[in-house]
Design a protein around this nucleic acid. Structure first.
Lengths: 241, 241
DNA sequence: ACAAAAGTGTTACTAATACACCCATGC
DNA sequence: GCATGGGTGTATTAGTAACACTTTTGT
């Protein structure tokens, strides 16, 4: 048996959190490394793949251990396996340990995420204000952000940040936070309604100082994800004729 | 050191090959398994990740070993790591060996692919006429096909099947083979030209029994791929405003 | 001249966008 | 009443698709 690289699973966990000015912004929890290499640096939560769990289970377990939350969305991002991902441990031991990381990305509800406690070794950062991370983790987060933004074809992924019932304005705010730009309320409403991804509950949300908005819920018999090669709910987009 | 799953790299290799009626169709090479489990069944080419190679190098090496060719496109597909991917080896040994497979997909030029020899244990199959494969490889191929078809946003990937200079009719044939439907020649020409992905060489292709078509080449200062989290040539698509 | 594919033009239709305006509630 | 966001209507624009037509070669 030849010596194979170690196998680890890490997760980029996204939530929306309000900043000081009350704006919703993308944020993610990071853990502080307590050993070499990169001791003291912030890094993505993760760990070795256990013997009796699937890769996605491992990602979910890491997520729960870090935040105490259950993901509302979880998808594989990429497997990183370059030879130069880890530096030598010390001048005495110039051979770095080879690690192949299978990275997932996840969404957790904003309501839940607001309540998670920061500890000395776990802390939330806004996605556009990250420090310099350990290993190639800055690159990984950047790629995860790109995937998240791309995957926001109306109403598949965004509801992962919301609770079961939500207004279209809340949904739009999620899109705006993810895409980093304003969306037209009227056009947004029509696009979402036309997609059929969302169904009106009878109820309206009261307590606002304006016309009470309708509450919607996600249409569950809609394919909510293509989380990789799972269910055959995929649709080929096709080119022009 | 806990016992970790073995790490393997497999590759779905696509080429275009003419069938009996002269039509171009998607095809891929498979290798026959010579040991349990699934002895005798066809499977994706691959093997264990070697100590001193990156994952993509391993995929390219497998590809060369199987077909003798160099890929014109190579991209990571997915990491498969479920617990139930491999059946028990025998009733005496009911514990299946756990394997995590990192799968790549690749394109090779059609001209080169036509010349590769079939041997008893390596054979090309048309993508829509696959036998029942070993492990979960049917699922994997299906997913790779879906990715290929999706990735055909005009002129990024299709030229991987062509030689350096090609006519727009040849390029269109590639699209038609990938998508499995006819495309309008006029609209196709306009779309490709507008994308800027292709530039006319001065030359025309002679020897046809009709008006000689212009030869084009791929525009090299165009981002030809987003092969995962590599170069920052990615573009966010964004939603409506 | 004819066939056959290259290459161009035009029209109809559909989706994207901008923005004006009415509606229902709290104060 | 007024302010505020919810919700609807609509005109303009841009992109897609269908298909007719002209051009250039070989035979």
């Amino acid at each position: 048996m030849s010596s194979q690289p170690a196998l680890a699973v890490s997760t980029v966990i996204f939530a929306l959190r309000s900043d000081a000015t009350g704006n919703l912004r993308l944020a993610l929890p990071l853990v502080r490394r307590i050993r070499s290499p990169f001791e003291g640096r912030w890094a993505l939560p993760g760990g070795p793949l256990a013997e009796n769990e699937s890769i996605s289970d491992s990602a979910a377990r890491t997520l729960a251990a870090t935040t105490g939350l259950t993901p509302s969305y979880l998808e594989q991002l990429y497997a990183f396996g370059g030879l130069d991902r880890s530096p030598a441990l010390s001048p005495d031991d110039p051979t770095p340990e080879r690690v192949v990381s299978i990275v997932y990305w996840a969404l957790v509800g904003s309501a839940e995420a607001e309540q998670t406690l920061a500890s000395e070794n776990v802390q939330w950062f806004f996605a556009d204000e990250l420090p310099e991370l350990a290993f190639d983790h800055n690159l990984i987060v950047e790629y995860a952000l790109w995937r998240l933004r791309n995957k926001v074809g109306y109403s598949r992924v965004a509801h992962g940040f919301l609770s079961e019932r939500f207004t279209l304005a809340e949904l739009r705010e999620v899109y705006e936070a993810i895409l980093g730009k304003q969306l037209d309320p009227g056009n947004f409403r029509r696009a979402v309604e036309a997609s059929g991804a969302v169904v009106p509950t009878g109820e309206r949300l009261g307590g606002t100082k304006h016309r009470p908005p309708m509450l919607y819920r996600y249409n569950s018999d809609f394919d909510l994800t293509d989380q990789g090669p799972l269910n055959p709910n995929r649709k080929t987009t096709g080119a022009s004729a």
